[in-house]
């Protein structure tokens, strides 16, 4: 499109907000005084609003952590943009948000061809199936000919196709845009099987009239590494988001929690001293203050605390750590060291 027409349209549309574009996202965020974070419109445990209208959830805590790292501990400087599954990647590509923390599956296509970078995995998920108990199904391999409810525009839809094709089974998909409508369709009996990420299945089961009448089948048919995403082309911003994530994991590994982070500043453990910025200039090297991780941990705690608070066994969701435990406890979370 002709640049002058673009400029004209642009000026005509500088309706209420005009943000000058530049390569350095960190500077833009600092100028705007807030981090624009894309989150789910509503996924229990990952992004939802409490009675006071405050956002909460595992993904939301990542937004807060990044904001705390940038704004010296102020985790309130976040503008949350709720995005549907189809909206999320265009919103990031069009610079409507600075970081996307919306249970987005890391795939090769998304990482390489869309101009996006995944910074890591903040939740290891996998796709599962839920069926009514009275169908007497005990394995996903018995689902041939079933009607399956699935959300559109997700990897879930693609995995479903692959799984049934690979196992030579027939199925009728019922494809629906919003997850809550998918759940409703399942409850009304429009389909025999509900499929989504296992974390979502547990939340969905809570909503059903008789949770005991539904079983979650043992098969996990896909790898769903969910993680925050940033735009390609800004290495510094990529590093900041990536190392906030690694910092949270390292903090759990080193036993630094929201409560003891002040005392830990006096620790003799060199790993802790580097994490908390007592030694070295790791924060300044990525454009932040040296005590960046102190700010982050004071705001949201370490990864384990985030997990327990939002989705862990003490929450209604009651999800076990499982794959999401640290590598030292038999899980998959493993962060490179800060040194």
């Amino acid at each position: 499109m002709n640049s002058s027409i673009k400029a004209l349209l642009g000026t005509a549309a500088v309706a209420l907000v005009a943000v000058p574009a530049s390569a350095a996202t960190l500077d833009d965020v600092r100028d705007a005084g807030q981090l624009r974070c894309g989150v789910n419109t509503g996924l229990p445990g990952f992004a939802s609003q409490n009675d006071q209208g405050e956002w909460q959830g595992l993904d939301v805590d990542y937004c807060k952590a990044i904001a705390a790292a940038i704004f010296e501990g102020d985790d309130s400087k976040v503008e949350y943009t709720p995005l549907s599954a189809v909206q999320r990647l265009p919103a990031l590509q069009n610079s409507e948000i600075d970081v996307l923390a919306r249970n987005t599956t890391w795939t090769m296509t998304r990482d390489t061809t869309l101009g996006l970078n995944f910074v890591g995995v903040n939740y290891y998920d996998g796709q599962g199936f839920m069926v009514r108990e009275d169908l007497n199904v005990t394995s996903a391999l018995q689902l041939s000919g079933a009607t399956v409810c699935v959300q559109s525009g997700t990897t879930t839809e693609l995995n479903l196709t692959d799984y049934f094709r690979a196992n030579n089974m027939e199925y009728n998909p019922v494809v629906i845009e919003s997850q809550s409508d998918v759940n409703a369709a399942y409850e009304q009996g429009r389909c025999d099987v509900l499929t989504t990420d296992a974390s979502g299945l547990y939340a969905t089961r809570l909503e059903l009239a008789n949770p005991d009448e539904h079983v979650i089948l043992p098969e996990v048919i896909s790898k769903e590494p969910l993680g925050p995403v940033v735009r390609q082309g800004d290495e510094q911003w990529f590093s900041i988001v990536k190392w906030v994530h690694f910092g949270l994991l390292n903090a759990e590994e080193l036993g630094v929690t929201q409560d003891n982070v002040e005392e830990m500043m006096d620790s003799d453990n060199p790993s802790i001293r580097r994490l908390l910025g007592v030694d070295g200039t790791f924060g300044e090297d990525i454009g932040l203050e040296n005590d960046w991780m102190v700010n982050v941990i004071e705001a949201v705690g370490n990864y384990g605390e985030i997990f327990e608070r939002n989705v862990g066994p003490d929450t209604p969701l009651n999800i076990q750590r499982g794959m999401n435990a640290l590598w030292t406890n038999g899980g998959l979370h493993y962060a490179p060291p800060i040194r």
Binding site: G42, P44, G45, S48, Q49, S180, A203, L206, P316
Partner: peptide, 16 residues
């Protein structure tokens, strides 16, 4: 209203 459904503090069969 629909966003309220995803608050884990309020997920019940009758909430929606």
């Amino acid at each position: 209203v629909r966003r309220g459904f995803s608050d884990p503090n309020w997920i019940t069969p009758t909430t929606p």
